[in-house]
Amino acid sequence: MTNSPLESQVLLRLGPIPIAAQVVSTWAIMLLLALACWRLSRRLSIERPGRLQTLAEWFLELAGAEIGATIRIDPKPYLPLLTTLFLFILSTNLSSLVPGNEPPTAHIETDAALAGIVFAATLYFGIRERGLGGYLRSFAQPTWIMVPLNVIETLTRTFSLMVRLFGNVMSGVFVIGIVASLAGLLVPIPFMALEVLTGIVQAYIFTVLATVFIGAAVSDDQSEGGDQNTSPKENV
């Protein structure tokens, strides 16, 4: 790979809409995930679950337990969004293993879309759980002087969420591209393995941070949410 990862490669245009390569990759990933889930859903059994079903059940149970432990309330309303984010980011990050494919998360547009969805989900769940007034009053905690800072924090943490994922994934792709252009075919393999680990970790971190943001929005305990927002996880 010799193109700059900062640039989106437009494959075609549908009128004024450019269809970038990352969008096509995203469609392919969506298709694979949908097909896999469709096949899984056709073979579900209560008495004798298969390996894939067992893995899916274990994953959802584990995700529900992690989300519940983080936000301290019933995780069911938030489970689809957060696990979708994790699966999507994990799949897109691991798609870098496909030769000639750039992971969509290595482009700022995809990460911006994901961060925007998290921001919108935070607003939606916060207002749904606490009401518009209650959610807006949460910005005046512990005192009204903190309103500007809390607003800025809400925006900047979304921005940091986007930049963190973009920086980590893009840097990995960038390093692999540089090494591949300098040292041939086999040398980038260790870097690719490291990129796999980085992709898994970044998917986990993005999901955990999204969980923390949503939990802070729906929680009545502002101080607890504040502590979570400044937890070590966010500083990774």
Partner: peptide, 21 residues
């Protein structure tokens, strides 16, 4: 592209919600 990706993620969310969760 940002909008397309957001729509893609929302569609994937809908698909996974129906086919997996």
């Amino acid at each position: 592209t940002v909008g397309l990706q957001a729509v893609n993620v929302l569609i994937l969310l809908w698909l996974l919600h129906r086919l997996l969760y």
